[in-house]
Amino acid sequence: RPMNAFMVWAKDERKRLAQQNPDLHNAVLSKMLGKAWKELNAAEKRPFVEEAERLRVQHLRDHPNYK
């Protein structure tokens, strides 16, 4: 299953946050990521939305029978 825009963004952002906050549990990091994503405007999200769409199209090509 291809990543959605949030997952594309969160992949690198989670690493950055975890390095800055090594003692935080994953659940806390996830909440921080969700809050930060909601605060991004459409222009800030656009590159990740476009990458998610590219991944979706590639997934359809690679797995035409996937449901």
Score class of each variant (00 low, 15 high):
R1T: 01
R1A: 04
R1C: 05
R1S: 08
R1Y: 14
R1K: 00
P2F: 07
P2V: 08
P2D: 04
P2N: 15
M3R: 04
M3Y: 05
M3W: 03
M3E: 09
M3V: 11
M3K: 04
N4Y: 00
N4V: 01
N4M: 02
N4E: 10
A5P: 08
A5Q: 00
A5K: 00
A5G: 07
F6K: 02
F6C: 00
M7C: 12
V8F: 11
V8W: 01
V8K: 04
V8S: 02
V8Y: 11
V8H: 00
V8R: 02
W9L: 00
W9H: 01
W9I: 05
W9Y: 08
W9R: 00
W9N: 03
W9V: 01
W9K: 02
W9C: 01
A10D: 06
A10T: 01
A10S: 08
A10F: 06
A10Q: 03
A10W: 00
A10G: 00
K11M: 13
K11I: 10
K11Q: 11
K11T: 06
K11R: 11
K11A: 09
K11G: 05
D12P: 05
D12K: 12
E13Y: 15
E13V: 00
E13S: 01
E13L: 03
E13G: 01
R14Q: 11
R14T: 05
R14W: 05
R14V: 02
K15P: 10
K15Y: 04
K15Q: 10
R16H: 03
R16P: 00
R16Y: 02
R16T: 04
R16S: 03
R16G: 00
R16Q: 01
R16F: 12
L17W: 01
L17T: 01
A18S: 11
A18K: 13
A18E: 06
A18N: 15
A18H: 09
A18M: 11
A18T: 06
A18I: 12
Q19Y: 07
Q19I: 10
Q19L: 12
Q20I: 05
Q20C: 07
N21K: 07
N21Y: 15
N21H: 15
N21R: 10
P22R: 03
P22W: 00
P22T: 02
D23A: 06
D23V: 11
L24G: 02
L24W: 09
L24P: 04
H25P: 15
H25M: 02
N26W: 11
N26Q: 13
A27I: 08
A27G: 09
A27N: 08
A27P: 09
A27L: 09
A27R: 14
A27Q: 09
A27V: 11
A27W: 07
V28I: 13
V28L: 08
V28S: 13
V28C: 10
V28F: 06
V28W: 01
V28Y: 08
V28P: 06
L29D: 07
L29I: 06
L29V: 13
L29K: 01
L29A: 05
L29T: 06
S30F: 10
S30P: 06
S30Q: 15
S30C: 10
S30A: 10
S30T: 13
K31V: 05
K31D: 01
K31A: 08
M32H: 13
M32S: 05
M32F: 03
M32T: 04
M32Y: 03
M32W: 04
L33W: 00
L33V: 05
L33M: 08
L33E: 06
L33P: 03
G34S: 15
G34L: 14
G34P: 01
G34T: 15
G34C: 15
K35T: 07
K35E: 14
K35M: 10
K35Y: 13
K35W: 00
A36C: 01
W37M: 00
W37C: 01
W37F: 01
W37E: 02
W37V: 01
W37Q: 02
K38G: 13
K38D: 12
K38W: 04
K38P: 05
K38C: 08
K38I: 05
E39N: 02
E39D: 14
E39Y: 12
E39W: 03
E39C: 06
E39K: 11
L40Y: 03
L40V: 03
L40E: 02
N41D: 14
N41M: 05
N41Y: 02
N41H: 06
N41A: 07
N41G: 14
A42E: 12
A42T: 12
A42M: 09
A42Y: 12
A43P: 06
A43E: 13
A43I: 04
A43D: 10
E44K: 09
E44T: 04
E44L: 07
K45M: 04
K45I: 03
K45P: 00
K45H: 01
K45C: 00
K45E: 05
R46M: 10
R46E: 12
R46W: 03
P47E: 04
P47H: 07
P47M: 02
P47T: 04
F48S: 01
F48C: 03
F48N: 01
F48Y: 05
V49E: 14
V49L: 08
V49A: 10
V49W: 09
E50D: 12
E50S: 04
E50A: 10
E50G: 00
E50F: 02
E50C: 07
E50M: 07
E50I: 09
E51K: 11
E51Q: 14
E51D: 01
E51A: 11
E51P: 03
A52T: 03
A52D: 01
A52K: 00
A52L: 00
E53L: 04
E53T: 07
E53A: 10
R54P: 01
R54L: 07
L55W: 05
L55M: 12
R56D: 07
R56Q: 09
R56P: 02
R56S: 08
R56V: 05
V57G: 10
V57T: 14
V57M: 12
V57Q: 12
V57L: 14
V57P: 06
Q58F: 03
Q58M: 13
Q58H: 07
Q58Y: 05
Q58C: 03
H59F: 10
H59R: 11
L60N: 12
L60K: 11
L60G: 12
L60E: 14
L60P: 11
R61K: 14
R61T: 13
R61I: 13
D62H: 13
D62N: 10
D62A: 14
H63I: 05
H63K: 14
H63M: 11
H63T: 10
H63L: 10
P64Q: 15
P64W: 09
P64T: 14
N65G: 14
N65R: 13
N65W: 07
N65C: 10
N65F: 04
N65D: 12
N65P: 14
Y66T: 13
Y66D: 15
Y66I: 14
K67N: 12
K67D: 15
K67G: 11
K67V: 12
